[in-house]
Design a protein around this nucleic acid. Sequence first.
RNA 1: GCCGACAUAGCUCAAUGGUAGAGCACAGCUUUCGUAAAGCUGAGGUUCAGGGUUCGACUCCCUGUGUCGGCUCCA
Length: 738
Amino acid sequence: MRCLPHGQPQIIRRLLLKVQLPDGNEIEVADGATALDVASSIGSGLARAAIAGKMTKDDRTEIVDLQKPLPGDCELAILTASDEDPDSLYVLRHSAAHVAAEAICKLFPEAKLVYGPPVENGFYYDIELSQSITPEDFPRIEAEMKRIVQEKRPFCRHEAPREEAMVKLRDEGNRYKIDNAERAEGDKLSFYVTGENVGSNFEDLCIGPHVPSTAVIKAFKIRQVSRSHYRGDVNDTPLQRVYGTAFFKKDSLDAYLTQLEEAKKRDHRVIGRDLGLFVMSEQVGAGLALWLPKGMTVRTQLQNYLTDEMIKLGYELVCTPQIGQLGLYRTSGHYPYYEDSQYPAMFESDRGKAIQSALQLAQRVEADRGSERKRGEVAVQAMISAMRQAWGAIEGLRDDAPLPDTIERLYAALASEQGYLLRPMNCPHHIGVYMAHPRSYRDLPMRIAEFGMVYRWEQSGELSGMIRVRGFTQDDAHLFCTPDQLAHEVLTTVKLSRQVLEVLNLYDYRVRIGLRDLASDKYVGSPENWAKAEAAIHQAAVESGMNFSEEKGEAAFYGPKIDFIVKDCIGRSWQLGTVQVDYNLPERFGLSYIGPDNAPHVPIMIHRAPFGSMERFVGILIEHFAGAFPMWLSPVQVAVATISEKSEAYGRQIYDTLKNAGLRVELDLSSEKIGPKKHRLRTAKINYILVVGEKEAQDNLLNVNDRDGRTIGNMTVGAFIGACQQEIVSKGDTCVGV
RNA sequence: GCCGACAUAGCUCAAUGGUAGAGCACAGCUUUCGUAAAGCUGAGGUUCAGGGUUCGACUCCCUGUGUCGGCUCCA
């Protein structure tokens, strides 16, 4: 028994901690025990495999170092060196980031470390370094990392009181670390040394946790280097961001890298070109897709499907133009608030065009400094005086005013100029449809739909194939309803959105409720309206039974929304379908219906687009199916390939029969051998390839092959057509077989 | 928009300041072929556009356009 200094027997208040394990068992360990102690008490094998603990106490879960004493009774899971466990990988990759940073610092002594977190599929480290790191440097970095790993150095945590630590950081003089430390919470700061030798081994300010030793980091790869800015601020210091990944096992790394290679082959930009689905033309303009006939076939099938479903649900189709008067968008709030995100307005009068030009010049000059700015200001003044001579003075505009005032006056002058805007959204036009007649509550809900093309001036760096474009087609509809009808209509639209994803086998989506950010001023409408709209959206999400996350600041400017988000083949997330509840635009446009009380009421609008954008949706779909569309969507469903010229007549006869049966069919009479012919047709992702030669002609049969290389067998034409029709109706089942 | 890289035949890529080339695809011919690539021949180029340096530019410099990877943004 330990004794107190006074020699009195110690009264032991607490000897044991209760630790609940994932299997439900509870074990007791000594006070001060660590996750490693718990692992050891369960088994030495587990202790060897352990890399961290996942501890829950007071409903808070955190991942902790193996060596950290447990704070009291808790739940604890031991994280082991498993590539299957995202938590284990998270810790591993955090540690790998430290090793990468050490390697980079050794090779580039000038490098200043900024921030190096684990991310979804690996880690990155932001570094300030004037010299560019290039892919040619990656093998050197990896070799240096390998050396560090082979030294089997432990990760050792050190804590210091905040003030003491800050002194040390200031001595080091790395502004980023000082900044990070200042933003860290708590009265202590922690550091991790990669090794046992404080002072000589690599050390980084870090909250942890880390794996016990570099030896655990068995498989890693530096993959990419790119640019970023400190704290994401483009005006702050430019940094180099080195991306890497790490796994516990080499096989897992290899599998991951192979998967990335495979994913690249699914890229819709490559498949879209190879299969002749769409092109992007430099002559037409960035972000403006040209749908080729085969791509348009896919799109038309999707549109027909959705249209049929909408008609069943009581929607009606409308068609509206792609531009509209500026006044419309002033009322809606799109113009000039979102001016930067729109194609420039087309002003009608010379005066309007001149003011627009002067404003654009003034805005550009405002960003300049020094003599360049002085020259610019002179040019702006010259434009203004020329305008005065031509059309008279612009109200409030003085020659000697500072540039910001001039910009404000030009803006004000532009506000009364007439012109047109390429529409960024369809809703104002659909509101025009609503306003075509007086409406009664008996007309509601009114559901109007249009595959409407809209144009947005996306930043040039954002454009990406069909997935992020400047001109796109929304499968847009607007529902106008009474408050009583709202909940039911929102729920129905949510169901429709899920239905279209799932009919295409797209189950891997997440649902996000976008709410208003109270701190932002980008929203229109009253807090009461917002509260009602957000409640309606929330209720629909709950009733639909989906898992969802709620995110502030993701609402549309007129209302909250439910977004369906999917990933492309290289892991980027994109919004597809959306459902939005809007109390505000009806108010802004003064919409009304006559209620049963014979008084006017303001309807509520629902904006919804299950595909979102046809361009983006088809892009994602190309990647999802790797170009091998289910038969109902395929641009070419069947190919007839003749063995030789001797079978040409029979081939033509089969082709005509299939075409008359409504199948999309291609005839290949070329003089190649059947091997290369099949190869070409399979590469074109045609669902079924019918080989026809003298034998088939004699027996009046088809030799049916699929695009995966399987020979299905011989069938009669009638049986084949029947199976195809069945497969088309099923929207995804395989029905052709013998 | 910012940072960086890139732009050569339809596609993938060569050509280091001195006559722009290959494979695949395409066209013609030969072959009439039985299930993952037959042979020969041919055509195809304002080397993204415009300007500059140079005796001479695909190559070096500037500007613009576009593409890619990030950042930032996405009503």
